[in-house]
Design a protein around this nucleic acid. Structure first.
Length: 293
DNA sequence: TGCCAGGCCTTCC
DNA sequence: GGAAGGCATGGC
């Protein structure tokens, strides 16, 4: 793993160079996070308590952010820059030729360290939904219930906290385009806000136990639970199976035959072990980008 | 226009 | 415990 060099340019732009295996486009547009959009050279996103504008040139990225306090540490954490991804890419590629292809396609795709609360609500919204609609709903919810920042002449809205979202009515959530998932959000918010459940505790729990806890929330089944575990709680042994993963796994590992989700899950967990989550994301991105049927 | 979307819940057996 | 049907709405 190479050493990352940190510098600040005169106009207060944070610059990180010498980053191994980061492709901003793959990482931000692969479908793991819903609040990033491209604006010229920059990708702009609202992440936890920050607004970030990031662009990449070769092995370096430039970051503008608000607030500036703690920005450097925040960027390191969110993009997981202390982790050696070339090692992960090598390991995942070595499983078989399919994963070698998928990793080559998505080289530089890193799993972000997202906020568990936002991730939970976002993936409840994702059920039986398409990505443009998911993005719009999350943005609408943030605008309606979250804190507002002003940055470089634009307004940006943080994802609302449990307390803020507990003020939401079903009608309000429906106007955000959540449709039949609105009632799930209401119930999940109520449960988290009133019980004071700490999602962080799921980091250290046995995986099936952590899954079970998440699945007690309305609108959270196995797939959504696995997304939260993988994308926000760094449980890299989780393997979310959505329709794309179902298709690509069936095609590559089951001779095109129908397989139960349970069997597919067991197969992936056994085959990929602690790299299952990484393998899932490379396969997902490759399959969806190539519209595999 | 009709099919489909990063599934889940409920019902029924 | 497993299969089947329903679900709101917008993208393509």
């Amino acid at each position: 793993m190479s050493q990352i060099t940190i510098s600040y340019s005169s106009n207060n732009l944070l610059s990180l160079s010498g980053i191994d295996s980061l492709n901003l486009h793959h990482t931000l547009m692969c479908g793991q996070a819903f609040r990033w959009k491209k604006d010229g050279d920059f990708y702009i996103g609202v992440v936890k308590e920050h607004v970030l504008k990031v662009r990449q040139e070769g092995d370096s990225i430039e970051v503008k952010g608000y607030p500036k306090e703690g920005l450097e540490a925040f960027v390191f954490d969110y993009f997981d820059l202390n982790k050696d991804y070339s090692e992960i890419e090598d390991k995942v590629s070595s499983f078989d030729e399919h994963l070698a292809t998928a990793v080559a396609f998505g080289k530089g795709l890193r799993l972000l360290r997202q906020d568990p609360w936002e991730c939970l609500i976002s993936f409840i919204i994702s059920a039986r939904n398409n990505i443009p609609c998911i993005r719009r709903s999350i943005e609408a919810i943030s605008m309606r219930y979250g804190d507002r920042y002003e940055f470089e002449g634009g307004f940006y809205y943080l994802f609302p906290s449990p307390a803020q979202l507990s003020q939401a009515s079903l009608e309000g959530l429906l106007e955000c385009g959540t449709a039949f998932r609105g009632k799930y959000i209401i119930e999940t918010v109520k449960r988290v806000f009133e019980s004071g459940i700490d999602l962080e505790e799921l980091r250290d729990m046995e995986l099936t136990e952590a899954r079970k806890v998440l699945m007690e929330f309305k609108g959270v089944g196995e797939k959504v639970a696995d997304c939260v575990l993988l994308f926000a709680l760094q449980r890299y042994e989780a393997f979310p199976i959505d329709i794309w993963i179902n298709r690509v796994m069936r095609r590559l590992y089951f001779d095109g035959k129908e397989v139960s989700l349970k069997k597919m899950q067991e197969y992936a967990q056994e085959r990929f072990r602690e790299y299952a989550g990484y393998a899932q994301e490379y396969l997902y991105y490759w399959a969806r980008s190539n519209q595999l049927s």
